[in-house]
Design a protein around this nucleic acid. Sequence first.
DNA 1: ACCTGAACACCGTTCAAGT
DNA 2: ACCTGAACACCGTTCAAGT
Lengths: 227, 227
Amino acid sequence: MGTRARHTVSRRSRPAKAPLSRDVIVASALSLLESDGLEGLSLRRVAAALDTGAASLYVYLANLEELYALMLDQALAEMPPTSGRKRGWRDRLKDYLASYLSILNKRPGLAHVAMSTISAGPNTLRMWEVLLGLLEEGGIDAEERVAGVDMLLLHVTAMAAEEDNRRSVGHDFKRVRNALAVVPRKDFPRLSTLFEQGLFSGSGDDVAIGWAVDVIVGGILANKHRG
Amino acid sequence: MGTRARHTVSRRSRPAKAPLSRDVIVASALSLLESDGLEGLSLRRVAAALDTGAASLYVYLANLEELYALMLDQALAEMPPTSGRKRGWRDRLKDYLASYLSILNKRPGLAHVAMSTISAGPNTLRMWEVLLGLLEEGGIDAEERVAGVDMLLLHVTAMAAEEDNRRSVGHDFKRVRNALAVVPRKDFPRLSTLFEQGLFSGSGDDVAIGWAVDVIVGGILANKHRG
DNA sequence: ACCTGAACACCGTTCAAGT
DNA sequence: ACCTGAACACCGTTCAAGT
């Protein structure tokens, strides 16, 4: 084993040891989330991936909650700058929210993080700004714009969280189907009829989001026209 | 120490020792949730409240996840049998969903449980049945009834979860307000304008639920009339 | 200022052993 | 069949001690 071999080994095993920073921590956490899901994510594991101990992270983070908020905002960096095409504002709104949905769905558990965290990071604010602009373009009043964006984001986030459940529990979903199949017609006439007609597919996908956005936007507009 | 004293003490300290059952466990867990919130709830603590060890619970529960589902369904036992008054189906729908919201809001953390659990318990099914009936009364088609109930429940649950956050983090919410107050007008013109107009109150309460239900129901009806 | 090992106060779940 | 103590494999967070 000559000098060359020793040299190579030392370079490989300690490449300046990734100097640790908020960004590095958040990136590492997101990649852990993507590969192992929310159950596989912990401060200890993030630290281990960064070749250090969990205590070291507390120089950059107040707590786990803060890491969650940073992760969410970082993930939202992938949002398109604005929905490029011309078309109608309503279609662009649908596309934009579909982007949001797919960002959440790409990382198992991030939707749940989004449900329990309030981010005020730059990318989150930009998303709000874009959505407010789209509703403004649609001629929706200021007050209803705020409530509308809140409602749209809440709904898409919740849809993503539900989709997450469907994926992660897997056969628990089958348990629900079985429970429905056995439901007594006497007590639950509507449920059993609808089940027979195969109307409990468990949607939650790309189709469902378009429908939901249409319902919410259509509902806001309809409310306006009624006073 | 005579016989009498010994007798009394043994009665007091071990009143037949609460013979342990699914129902007892779930009731104990719900009361723990109500008093200490979700962070104060654990299998070990439920077991301790029942004067036993955590391992004993596994005779009645497969795991924590199952306890969550049982808790949710048990809490839903409080739902009114149906919204009693005559009035319109739409108002009764609003009241019914307001009941659901308040059941979730009474127990801090239950909304988050509801977001990550799929219950097929009797009380959950009854709630679905009632909601399906109300939308049927409203003349909404079968397919849209299912999607509509799903959407309504998802939304109210998500609202409750958000409300939960607002309460439990408390000053974190203030942090968001501060972040909004400082937002650069150049990059976020709409956000800063709306903030100045005081339109970020953080609603989420009884008013908001009526509005949201109106939007969703109105949206479903509006969609129908467009084809 | 930044990093760390060790400790603290917890978790859910399993399992061998008891009744 | 039901219950249990102890153990296993984890957590987030703190803190004294190092550089």
